[in-house]
Design a protein around this nucleic acid. Structure first.
Lengths: 341, 341
DNA sequence: TTGTATGCGTTATCAA
DNA sequence: TTGATAACGCATACAA
C-alpha cells in the first residue's frame, strides 16, 4: 500500500506534484510527469479513498435505497441493480445497497451518515415522505419513479402513459375495441408500483373514453395464483372483451394458466398483452406473451447518471426523463374474432 | 455536520474523551459520559466515516462481487443481494455492489483499491482464478459456492448433495424407480451454476447406482424455450421414466408447457420435482411445481457473516457451511403409475 | 512549474 | 479518569 509520500520520494518530487499529476489539477512538465507516473506504476500506487474523501469532503459513493420490506422484487429489479452499479463504476463511483423500510427518518440517518454523496431512491410513491425528507435535506438525490407532482424533483421513470397508449394502439390495430385492463387494485408491491399503477390506469380510462372504445378494469393480486383465479373466471365475467392489457407481471403466467383451464383460447378468443414485463416471465407463459419490455437497464443507467450529475454539476438542469417500454411481439396477440369481422 | 471537536467543546471535555465514550475504548466516569452523550444528542453528532476509516485503516465496507456478464440473474439472486445487504447493515457494515467480469486482475483492482475491507464472491466455479487471486492476497473474503477442493477456503454454499438425495428420496417414497435428472450440460450461467451442476449431477449418478434405481440425465438449456422443446419430446424419448428431477429453474415452466402440449399428464404419467428453485417460479407453472427452495436469504446472511468474521476475528475457524434446500410440496408430484402398481 | 504547510475528522499513544 | 497530540493519506492555498 504505497502512499503519495512513497511515490514522491521515488520520483524525487514533492507530494503536491504527485497530486497534480494524479488529478490533473495543475500543469506539470512532461519529464516530471513521466517520472511520477513511472514511480506510481513501479510502486503499484492506488489513491487511498479514505484520505481522499476526508480531504475533499466527498466519498464518491452513492446509495441505492430500496425497500427492504418488499414482498416481491422481481427479475426487473435485478437488471436494474446491476446496470446502476455498472454505470456508477464507469463514472468512478461506488454504489452501496441500502435496504430501508419506507420511513423518512431512515433517509435522515443515511444522509447524515457522511458515507454517501448522493441517494438514488427506488419505489417512489405518489405521496412519499421519504421524498419530502430528501427535499428538505442537502444531499443530492434522484428518484426512480415520480410523486404525484414531481415538478422540481430530479427523476427518471417509465413512461407509463406512453406505454399504455402504445399497448392500446397495438390492440386497436388488430381490430380490438373492447379491452380490459388488469392490475392490482389493492396495494401493489413491485418495483414500479404505486405511481405506476395510478398513472397507467388513469391513462387507460382516458384513452378508452377519448377513442370511443369499450374498456373495463379488472382487479388481480400480484401472484400467479391470483392470476389463475382471475383467468379461470375471465370469459364468464367479461364475455364481450376481446383483448386484455395486463400490468401485473407476477400474475401473468397464472392468468394464462387460468384462461387455458377455462378453455379460453389465446389469442383466438382473447388477446393478451403484458405491459411493463420482461423476456424471462413472458417466455414462461403459454403461449409466450407479447409484452412491452420494462427498460430496467436504461433506468438504472439514467438514474445513476442523474444522481451523479446532481453531485458533480449541482447547477445543471433537473433530469425529468421518461422512458417508454418497448413492444416485443409474441403469440398471445392476434386479430379480433368479435362479431362483425 | 457536527464534529468531535464540537461535541467536546459543548460537553466541556477533550476530543479524546468523546472518542472514548463513542467507542467504549476506555472507562469514563458516569457524569462525564452523560455530559458527552447529551452533547452528542443535542448536536446530532454522527461519526464521520472517512475520518474514522483513515485513522483506523478500515472502512467497514464489504464488496459483493458478482458476475456482470451473467446472462440471467434470477429471482434468487435478488433475494440474496437483499439479505446480504441487510445483514451487513445489522453488523455495522455497508455492502457495495461490485460488478466484475470473471477475471483475476479485477480482484486485485478491488482489493487494492483500499475502499473495502472484505470480499464476498458469488458464482464460484470449480476452477476459479479469482479465488486464487483472493487466496494470494491479504484481503479477507468468503465464497458463495465452492471450488473443486475448498479445503482451507471460507465458504457458504447450498448443500447440493443433500438436496439431490432428498429429492430422490421424495420420489422413491412414492414408488418411483426410474428417474431422470434434467440440467444444462453445456455451460450454465446462473447463481449456483458450475459447482452446483457438477456436484448435483455426480450425486444423482452415485445415488441412483447405489440404490439400484434406474436413472438418466437429460440436457436442457437455461431458457423456458429450451425447456419447452425438451418437454415436448420427453415422453417419446424416455418412455420408462416416471419422475423427473429438474435442476434448471428457468427452463422449468417451459418444460411443463412442453409436457402438456405433448399430452404428457403431470403428475399422473410423470412426476416433476424442481431442485433449487423459488416460490415465484414454481407457482408460475401448471401444475404448480413441487420444489426444493433455494436458501437464498440464509446464504446471504451467512455469507456476509462469514466475511465480517474473517475481518473482525481473523483467527476464528474458517466457515464451511452447507445449507440444503427445503422441500415445498406441490401438485406436480404423485405416486408412480408404472407397471406393477 | 514545483514545493511547503495546513486541514479534513478520528483514533490511539502517552502524559498528567 | 482525562487531556494533548501525533499519526492516517490526501488536496490545495499559498510561496517560491
Amino acid at each position: 500500500m504505497a502512499t503519495m509520500q512513497d511515490v514522491a520520494r521515488q520520483a524525487g518530487v514533492s507530494i503536491a506534484t504527485v497530486s497534480f499529476v494524479l488529478n490533473g489539477t495543475k500543469a506539470v512538465t512532461e519529464p516530471t510527469r513521466k517520472r511520477v507516473e513511472a514511480a506510481m506504476a513501479e510502486l503499484g500506487y492506488r489513491r487511498n479513498p479514505a484520505g481522499s474523501a476526508l480531504a475533499r469532503g466527498r466519498t464518491d459513493i452513492i446509495a441505492l435505497l430500496y425497500p427492504a420490506l418488499q414482498r416481491q422484487l422481481h427479475a426487473t429489479a435485478t437488471r436494474f441493480f446491476t446496470s446502476a452499479a455498472e454505470r456508477a463504476q464507469e463514472r468512478g463511483f461506488s454504489l452501496v445497497m441500502w435496504p430501508a423500510a419506507n420511513e423518512a427518518h431512515e433517509i435522515d440517518e443515511l444522509t447524515r451518515s457522511g458515507l454517501i454523496d448522493g441517494v438514488l431512491l427506488m419505489e417512489v410513491q405518489l405521496e412519499d415522505e421519504r421524498v419530502e425528507a430528501l427535499r428538505k435535506g442537502t444531499t443530492p438525490f434522484a428518484l426512480i419513479g415520480r410523486t404525484q407532482d414531481p415538478t422540481g424533483l430530479p427523476y427518471v421513470d417509465i413512461d407509463f402513459e406512453q406505454t399504455v397508449v402504445s399497448g392500446i394502439e397495438e390492440l386497436v390495430a388488430r381490430g380490438h375495441t373492447n379491452i380490459a385492463f388488469l392490475y392490482d387494485h389493492s396495494g401493489p408491491s413491485t418495483l414500479h408500483a404505486y405511481g405506476a399503477i395510478a398513472r397507467a390506469s388513469r391513462t387507460f380510462r382516458d384513452t378508452i373514453a377519448q377513442s370511443g372504445l369499450s374498456g373495463v378494469t379488472v382487479d388481480c393480486g400480484e401472484t400467479p395464483r391470483a392470476g389463475r383465479e382471475v383467468g379461470e373466471m375471465f370469459r364468464e365475467k367479461h364475455p364481450d372483451v376481446t383483448a386484455v392489457l395486463i400490468m401485473n407481471e407476477l400474475a401473468s403466467p397464472g392468468f394464462m394458466t387460468g384462461l387455458r383451464q377455462a378453455g379460453t383460447l389465446v389469442p383466438d378468443e382473447l388477446s393478451v398483452l403484458s405491459l411493463v414485463s420482461s423476456d424471462t416471465v413472458a417466455s414462461m407463459c403459454d403461449p409466450e406473451l407479447a409484452f412491452m419490455r420494462a427498460p430496467a437497464e436504461e433506468l438504472g443507467r439514467l438514474g445513476t447518471d442523474a444522481v451523479i450529475d446532481r453531485i458533480t454539476k449541482p447547477d445543471s438542469a433537473l433530469p425529468h426523463r421518461l422512458v417508454p417500454c418497448q413492444m416485443v411481439p409474441g403469440s398471445s396477440v392476434g386479430p379480433t374474432s368479435a362479431v362483425g369481422d
